[in-house]
Nucleic acid binder design. Structure first.
Lengths: 183, 183
DNA sequence: ACCTGAACACCGTTCAAGT
DNA sequence: ACCTGAACACCGTTCAAGT
């Protein structure tokens, strides 16, 4: 990549992260280009869609989040590892408004730039869930997709209930209790 | 109200219901005015905000939904009445895309035209919840606001998972199990 | 090869001019 | 009293013109 192109790419990424944090996932793309000191066409050249830009901004951190599951699995009992990772997932997908619903929407669309991130998330969750099932901590008949939907629902509810830092933990606690095997 | 004003009001209401169903809660207001055969200024005269229009379109059905709780409470055991009504609530708030998050956002904003509907919903839910607690079917420490958040989360997840009619019921089932008192 | 910014089609909202 | 539709400020996206 040419030097000026690379510089513009980096500037766009920084401006996008700032704008997404400030205004949410539907921040104005024009505003992002303006903040980066770049023509709007340049933004579209580097990132053809909003999802491509979101993926560039957040893809790495999603991969790190998924990688962290190995450590949790190695140090914690199955059930605690699952809960801890799901909490981290909710905190991560609520770093800015609208990210949770965006990730939810692309989970079935293989052509989306965010599909890779969605897939990593669901694969990681499934692995932790299987381990929790094997340990008898979660009922066998729980479909990974259903757990994913519940967690995304909690993430979206969290976005609507700001100012209560313990909210995600409490919601996850209430929900996870319902996933225990019947005694 | 003048005869032509009333006619325009009715036309706007019909066009809005159609557009909301077709395009979701963020349907173009301009398009709604056009469908109603009315200038855009007329729409704003009758409904100063999008929320005012949403309230006019859906307020009555929310009141009917809340009124139906009495019948459920009279004919069903406490736990079943709660579950049945929550399912009806989810089905109602997912009649078109974006309604659930709109209702969620206005639950704390007393100045919103939708606040009345929000309040009716939470009051009805609290009554059914208290009855379920009294019957020993739900744990005493469950805050009504937390149950509301979970249900809204399920509604938003439902919007993102179309084509599975049993989805809301399954999600509610999973969640409600977790709300049982510990044995 | 890459960038710029004008151009286009849209949207929400307001308001002067009409009846 | 009520309505209309032009006007304004925005937005996403494209593309001819520049370097």
């Amino acid at each position: 990549m040419r030097a000026d192109a690379r510089r513009n790419y980096e500037r766009l990424l920084a401006a996008a992260e700032q704008a997404f944090t400030e205004y949410g996932a539907d921040a104005s793309l024009d505003e992002i280009a303006r903040r980066a000191g770049v023509g709007s066409g340049t933004l579209y050249r580097h990132f053809p869609t909003r999802d491509a830009l979101l993926e560039a901004v957040f893809g790495d951190s999603v991969e790190r989040l998924c990688a962290s599951a190995d450590e949790l699995a190695a140090t914690l009992p199955a059930q605690e590892a699952l809960v801890a990772w799901l909490l981290a997932l909710v905190r991560h997908t609520t770093t800015f408004h609208g990210l949770a619903s965006t990730l939810m929407a692309c989970s079935t669309d293989e052509s989306s730039p965010l599909y890779r991130s969605c897939h990593s998330i669901s694969a990681t969750m499934t692995a932790l869930l299987d381990r929790a099932k094997a340990a008898g901590a979660v009922r066998e008949d729980l479909a990974p997709g259903d757990l994913g939907a519940l967690v995304h629902g909690i993430a979206m509810a969290t976005e609507a209930a700001p100012g209560d830092p313990s909210f995600p933990e409490r919601m996850l606690g209430l929900t996870l209790d319902g996933l225990r095997p019947r005694s």
